[in-house]
Amino acid sequence: MSIDVADTDRGYVLCVGLPLEACSEVARLMGNQAVVVAAADTDGARALLGGDRVEWSHAGVAAAPPDPPPRKPSRVGALQRGPLRVDLGTREVTIAGRRVHLSTREFDLLVALASEMDRVWSFAELTVHVWHTGYLGDPDTVTSAVKRLRKRLAAVGGLEVASVRGIGYRLLVPS
């Protein structure tokens, strides 16, 4: 499917990467002045608008999400938080000397949570930091990964990934 601007005498507002609630609010505010179209990402927007024939302009874009940060080169060293030790070079995790086997995403999630112990990580921050994509308003991906990480950590004990209702998660490590 693609959009043909000649199909309507109204203009278009293209919401790229915004949660559906935000797109609905834009549509409500625009009323009958424009057609509001939602796309999950720039590739979807390009497909809707006819691919490479479209000239892209950022003028007038009010609510575009920030681009995710570039992937950082692998770090060497380790994070030590109480009984938790995360070796960033070998990607190994131990709790009180017991090895914990984690998937790539589980490891990256744990590194994010352990990197700043005194803060709550929002769903959006974890999505950008761990998955290196923009947050589209659906916390299910983060929630599922946290559920798997909690299961792995529970097998060893000593750590807790605590929920902060409606905000995100934080890592609790005993002293």
Rank of each mutant, 00 (worst) to 15 (best):
G17E: 02
F107G: 08
P174A: 13
C15E: 04
V86G: 02
M30N: 04
S74Y: 06
R85N: 10
G97H: 00
W56V: 02
M117W: 08
V54R: 08
E125T: 11
R75H: 12
M117C: 09
L29P: 02
A34K: 04
G134M: 08
V164A: 05
V16M: 00
H58N: 12
G77Q: 11
V161L: 11
K151H: 14
G157N: 10
T143H: 13
P70G: 13
H129L: 07
R71D: 12
A112E: 07
R28L: 12
S122Y: 04
T90W: 01
R81M: 00
L29H: 07
A38P: 01
S144Y: 15
A34S: 08
G17R: 02
G77E: 13
V156C: 09
K151P: 06
V164F: 02
G17T: 06
R152M: 10
V161R: 00
G89S: 09
A155I: 08
E25T: 07
R148C: 12
L126P: 03
R71L: 08
G168Q: 00
V86S: 02
I167T: 11
V26F: 00
A114C: 10
V156E: 12
P65M: 02
G44A: 13
P19F: 04
T42I: 13
L49E: 07
R53N: 07
R81Y: 01
S103H: 07
H132W: 11
D4I: 10
D108N: 14
I3K: 05
